[in-house]
Design a protein around this nucleic acid. Sequence first.
RNA 1: CGAGGUGUAGCGCAGUUGGUAGCGCGCUUGCUUUGGGAGCAAGAUGCCGCAGGUUCGAGUCCUGUCACCUCGACCA
Length: 478
Amino acid sequence: MSKKEKLVKAITSRDEDFSQWYTDIVTQAELSSYSSVRGCMIVRPYATALWELIRDDLDRRFKETGHENVIMPLFIPESLLQKEKDHVDGFAPEVAWVTHGGDEKLSERLCVRPTSEVLFCDHYSEIIESWRDLPKLYNQWVSVVRWEKSTRPFLRTREFFWQEGHTAHATAEEAIKETKDILELYADFFEETLAIPVIKGVKTESEKFAGAETTYTVESMMYDGKALQSGTSHYFGDGFAKVFDIQYTDQENQLRYVHQSSWGVSSRSIGGIIMVHGDDDGLVLPPAVAPIQIAIIPVAQHKEGVLKKAAELYDLLKENYRVKLDDSDRMPGWKFSEYEMKGVPLRLEIGPRDIENNSCVLVTRDNREKIIVPLEELEERIPGILKEYRQRLYDKAKAHRASHSYTAGSSEEFFDLLENKPGFVKGSWCGSANCEAEVKERTGATARCITNDKVTDNDVCMICNEAATSHVIWGKAY
RNA sequence: CGAGGUGUAGCGCAGUUGGUAGCGCGCUUGCUUUGGGAGCAAGAUGCCGCAGGUUCGAGUCCUGUCACCUCGACCA
């Protein structure tokens, strides 16, 4: 079989039809299934394992930085949701309502949480009294519901899984520091753990979270050049505190409002992993979150000693890695394709020839390079091989982003790039919502984030030609 | 929620002017195979999305409805 020929015919080529490719991966790699509830997905065991690893990594980071997990109710009374105007305006159109308990109509309808700011605020108003109670660094791992019109597995579903951190601080400075620290935490998580390069920045007024003063974001670029908002961290100032009356007494016996932040990363990140790293043979998973890191495939397993040796290697490696020994009666070639489809970083082949040479064959998922390793070197070689593998994923994604990123020097160039080149376009902006809306109308692209690049006197708005106040990354988004 | 498309076996599909259900893959069992999705043989699997209607007779025609897909609008 030629190298160029697609090994797995079941997957549509990425370049031919990207969204069909995405759907194929999701079903073929057994990540999710459609459920009987429209817009909600079944997260299958493989994707659940992936999500658990993502969760564990983030959770460890949160706990290392002093955060505590809590669990808030699934429901929000309508009156509570109504309290903060911007917030309710932002979410009301897409909330699901519970109106009955059994046969009885509820005196007040309950919404299924689309996010939990108001629940945390309500709770904080009761438990915070003194400066000694601060800061409160809470997080929860839950699912939320937003009644989306059109849905796609992992990227947009009516119920999705996430963590939402909600913190309360004595001062604005402290809350802003928290907001930014979390942004850094998220960036590091995406880059190190998921090998996905991100751009950090601030959302524009029209793109920021409903009720926030400032929204920070990490944005990543998918293979098709579209952006995925991968994590957000919001600074609330004391806006919610004033509405929900969250006050504490400071060291001078003065009543003060707390300053708050909230931040979240969702199961959407799974969609990001698929669309950044995946290829025409299936998923490609970063080692840190791969449910199976090494797949051991015995070759000619009916021959004496093969399964025994494979089992020995399994026992050796399972101490430090998530290993799967596939001794099913499938053909070896079938197994190769199967674990490539599932994005397993490393395949270990062991057959009679290897046993004779006291070695085995390691194959890395991304480039399919075959490395023959003497068995006595196996344990010491694997960490380096996985490290280089992760680095290749990251470098490849970064190079792809670089080759699909542009800086517009003029208005014509700006609109031409956005209309004709998939990817990110950096362009200076005057700060007006009208100009932003015009870009969206003409090109479908939105302001992904404001960078902290310096603005000079020569920089003008790409839309209206007035003096620019910031540099913005523009792009079409999921 | 707008425009278009598709619903027939687990999956992908065929099914002619209306005449009573088929192919490929997968699944089960057995034998032979095993270094890139094996071969042969024997099996199993259907309220033709759902509800009405026309007809002696409907997968096929009509009406309604639901679901899914693609593209817009809205959004993590």
